[in-house]
């Protein structure tokens, strides 16, 4: 765990120098990333099995499920705390979320929030949890220590995916029915801006610099690329049937999007903003997250109840791991 943190800190530091020294430092930054990859410890992936009322814990080094934890209330959304010690799992039928202690391997708390909790995210510093409510059109802000609700913010209709900027300054919310993304100021806990995107945005992700948001629109079968600062759309990229959620890999150079109704993952080159590949995975792929090695992408296949592991370099499925009934894993389900 320490090594992972160290790697992240050091490469960020080098990248910081890059802004002062210009071109030359870019090479150092990339070299650091390559050299440090083998240092990364294998984290765990936490897959919510909504129809099975459980969470499968995948040891990513062994490539298999090492534990299955009962989580009642139809677990759907997953958010791993930055240090990997806690996993927050939204439980819509239990009207709240569960807190999983990863060392103990058990649920240590259940928090009542609202009627239809779905999207869930945790702050980049691990101090706050954000939970969207599908029915109440709100995002609740919860203190991670006391597990008390600090504030409930009204957003667009049927808020779904949530993502926090790497600097912990902003929270982006996909409002499925309003066809928009709201940007919430995490200091003031108010909406700063709302941008219209494609039809029925669901999952979304942000690059590691906090500059771009990628939003999967389930109804218009495309991805809206937003500039995070201005919330202006940069591009709309057509993908396949029912794009559900997205994740970045290989230094943000490739975007992977699950196409729920096509049983596939679209690969987009983030420089040209063109689709460069289509990878067949299981049936009804939903949640997608990138491993901390920045190379392997994990996809939860809802219908098949398993997880496909994609190598982002070769664009091939290298492993399929059996999980449980209705694997959904909507959110950041791999600890960093």
């Amino acid at each position: 765990m320490f090594q992972v943190n160290y790697r992240r800190t050091s490469s960020r530091l080098v990248c910081g120098i890059h802004t002062i020294l210009g071109g030359k430092a870019v090479a150092i930054c990339i070299a650091t990333a390559f050299l440090s990859t083998p240092l990364a410890a294998a984290p765990f992936a936490y897959i919510s099995n909504q129809l099975g009322d459980s969470v499968s814990v995948i040891d990513t080094e062994k490539g298999k499920v090492v534990d299955t934890i009962v989580v009642q209330g139809k677990p759907a959304g997953v958010a791993a705390s930055p240090d990997g010690s806690r996993i927050y799992i939204s439980t819509p039928e239990a009207k709240g979320f569960a807190v999983l202690d990863t060392k103990k391997g058990e649920v240590i708390a259940k928090v009542a929030v609202n009627d239809g909790t779905l999207g869930i995210a945790v702050g980049s510093n691990g101090k706050r949890i954000y939970v969207a409510d599908w029915y109440k059109n709100t995002v609740s802000v919860i203190d991670a220590d006391s597990l008390k609700i600090i504030k409930t913010i009204g957003v667009g209709e049927s808020p779904s995916g949530l993502v926090v900027s790497p600097d912990n300054r902003w929270l982006y919310v996909a409002n499925r029915i309003s066809n928009s993304v709201s940007k919430i100021d995490l200091n003031k806990l108010t909406i700063k801006k709302t941008a219209q995107v494609g039809t029925h945005p669901f999952g979304l992700t942000i690059d590691s610099r906090g500059e771009r948001i990628y939003v999967a629109n389930v109804q218009s079968d495309d991805v809206t690329v937003l500039e995070a600062a201005s919330m202006q759309p940069i591009a709309t990229v057509k993908v396949n049937m029912l794009p559900y959620a997205a994740a970045l890999a290989l230094n943000d150079s490739r975007l992977f999007v699950t196409n729920q109704d096509d049983g596939s993952v679209s690969v987009i080159d983030t420089e040209t903003l063109k689709e460069i590949g289509l990878i067949t995975v299981g049936e009804k792929p939903e949640g997608i997250s990138t491993h901390s090695d920045d190379r392997h992408v994990y996809v939860a296949n809802w219908f098949d109840g398993d997880v496909s592991v994609i190598d982002a370099r070769t664009l091939k499925v290298i492993d399929t791991i059996k999980t449980g009934e209705g694997s959904r894993a909507f959110g950041q389900f791999i600890g960093k």
């Binding site: 129809l51 599908w134 049927s158 029915i177 809802w302 209705g326």
Partner: peptide
């Protein structure tokens, strides 16, 4: 339209 587009929280399956 708004009401018609929402759906229940737990997707079901049959095979």
């Amino acid at each position: 339209t708004a009401v018609a587009n929402a759906h229940g929280p737990v997707r079901q399956k049959a095979e």
